[in-house]
Amino acid sequence: MIKITNLEKFYRTEEVETIALNKLTMEVNTGEFVAIMGPSGCGKSTLLNILGMLDDPDEGSYMFNGIEIAHFNERKRADLRKHNIGFVFQSFNLIDELTVFENVELPLIYTGVSSADRVKRVEEVLDKMQIMHRRNHYPQQLSGGQQQRVAIARAVVNKPKLILADEPTGNLDSSNGNDVMELLTDLNEQGTTIIMVTHSEHDARYSHRIIRLLDGQTVMENIMV
């Protein structure tokens, strides 16, 4: 599904140039669950941003489903992104002014799904995440675990092929964290490809494969059994 080759990304200020990704090459197949680990500043987030088409690389190739997208403009990337990728963040990033239902509904609005379909699909996914009873609440009225479940619901409502999770359990206690990991595992078993950035060895163990980064390069790959 994803094949990146010699990917490079620099950050420049007036005086210093920092290399975030240094000729990184990696591949993720459809249906895989991959964890990316490494110390702070190793380029994990940069990689995730590029994989999520939020940012573009300076050099190298990024093939998504066989299409070279490294030089796509923002509009094209956004279009590809909203149909194929769901995001889950550490800080949930729900919109405070919207209810649970409306937050989950948002991606469907942006992809132009009809109103009747939207209701059906949102209800379906809220049911699956067991937060149906909270559908008319606002994010501030929910616990962290519930918020993250809403965020995951929002990420999957469009039935994306790929979910990118950026430390999804980082703001949760261990019990809620485990629930979230179970949810991701379920999604993966139903066929969704998952790439997850994490600091937690515990969480990483849910994945099929761990890619360890240091200074913008792959230093080790562990295949989980």
Binding site: L54, D79, R81, N93, L106, Y110
Partner: peptide, 16 residues
């Protein structure tokens, strides 16, 4: 600004 970012991530383009 955060809301703007989130909306962009989940598929809103600039015109929307």
């Amino acid at each position: 600004i955060k809301e703007i970012g989130v909306r962009k991530v989940i598929g809103s383009d600039r015109s929307q």
